[in-house]
């Protein structure tokens, strides 16, 4: 197991080099970033001076190698816009994004499992048809549109929940301010509901369909029939014999799902004015704040790598037949 983990972590270095190089090249392919840092009336001399000040006058390989040299020393550079350490900027926004992602994940999984099981056990009935119809809709509706509709109907017309904004919980918790986190919690949940639903709908729909098909496959296995013929109650057959065995493909998807949710928050953070990493990255890309984009890419890549590693380890716990090589 340890050798496997070390090998996977070493592989992650190649991944980091690949994604940082790719994002670096893409950002520079989209024109000279200097123009975004000078006044619209700046003269050619002022633009040239800004180019030198920002370091964009140096050859691209040199700029990239400097970044990688900094990365090896744990320095991801300083934001060209705000003059703050880029990694600190990412980490300061990460708690808000994690709150949203975790909330959406919990919502999606906690609803997808019972809905998927219900659909599988009621296969061919109107209940199954209705669930699958909504699942198809949930995967088809753009999150941007859904977010705006929820915001306008639930937030503005019904005035049931806040339209936009954020109340922090994870950040005070990480800073050891437990009282503040506890005091914020009820309000934080209210602010989380609309953006959380917006993000969760796609994931919920996809996972409900996946769990349904996985359950249908397992329910047709001989050992399930045997369990039924032994006279075990239906609930025990479904939950203890069928569901656990249907979980392996689901866990694979859920591991990726968390990463998918993380990367998919940009639009929802924008619609609901959620101060997370998604908006930071989006703004950094439009402003060509390259150190911030690179710091975000490195952070997200590491999270994806660790998540996948976690999923691999979880396989072994779920199915002892699986071995890691």
């Amino acid at each position: 197991m340890s050798a496997y983990l070390v090998r996977r972590l070493l592989q992650s270095i190649i991944v980091i080099i690949g994604v940082t190089l790719l994002s670096f090249l893409v950002l520079h392919m989209a024109g000279d970033p200097t123009y975004l840092y000078v006044s619209e009336r700046a003269s050619n001399e002022e633009i040239a001076a800004a180019r030198v000040a920002l370091g964009f006058d140096r050859p691209l390989p040199e700029q990239y190698l400097n970044f990688m040299a900094g990365l090896l020393q744990g320095d991801l550079g300083t934001s060209l816009r705000s003059r703050q350490p880029a990694f600190d900027m990412v980490m300061s926004r990460l708690p808000a994004t994690l709150e949203l992602t975790i909330f959406a994940m919990v919502l999606a999984v906690s609803l997808a499992i019972p809905i998927g099981i219900l659909s599988a056990t009621k296969r061919g009935t109107p209940v199954d048809g209705g669930i699958m119809l909504f699942a198809m809709l949930g995967q088809s509706i753009p999150s941007f549109w859904l977010g705006l509709m929820l915001l306008l109907f639930v937030g503005l017309q019904l005035r049931l929940l806040p339209i936009s904004g954020h109340v922090p919980v994870l950040e005070p918790l990480l800073q050891g301010n437990f009282n503040e986190a506890a005091a914020n919690f009820p309000s934080a949940i209210r602010y989380l509901i609309l953006p959380g639903i917006t993000i969760a709908v796609f994931s919920l729909s996809r996972n409900a369909r996946l769990i349904r098909s996985s359950m249908l496959e397992v329910l047709s296995q001989d050992y399930v029939q045997t369990a039924r013929s032994k006279g075990l109650p239906s609930r025990v057959v479904i939950m203890r014999h069928a569901f656990r065995n249907a979980l392996v493909p689901v866990v694979t998807i859920l591991g990726l799902e968390f990463g998918f949710l993380l990367s998919g928050v940009v639009v929802v953070e924008t619609v609901f004015s959620w101060p997370g990493v998604g908006r930071l990255v989006f703004n950094a890309i439009t402003q060509r704040d390259i150190p911030v984009v690179q710091a975000s890419v490195v952070t997200f890549s590491m999270m994806f790598i660790l998540l996948n590693l976690f999923v691999d380890v979880l396989y072994v716990r779920l199915d002892p037949r699986i071995r890691l090589h």
Binding site: L160, P162, H166, A183, P186, S187, R190, Y191
Partner: peptide
Amino acid sequence: LAVPLAVS
């Protein structure tokens, strides 16, 4: 739903 929004 009854929690006031005053925290924000």
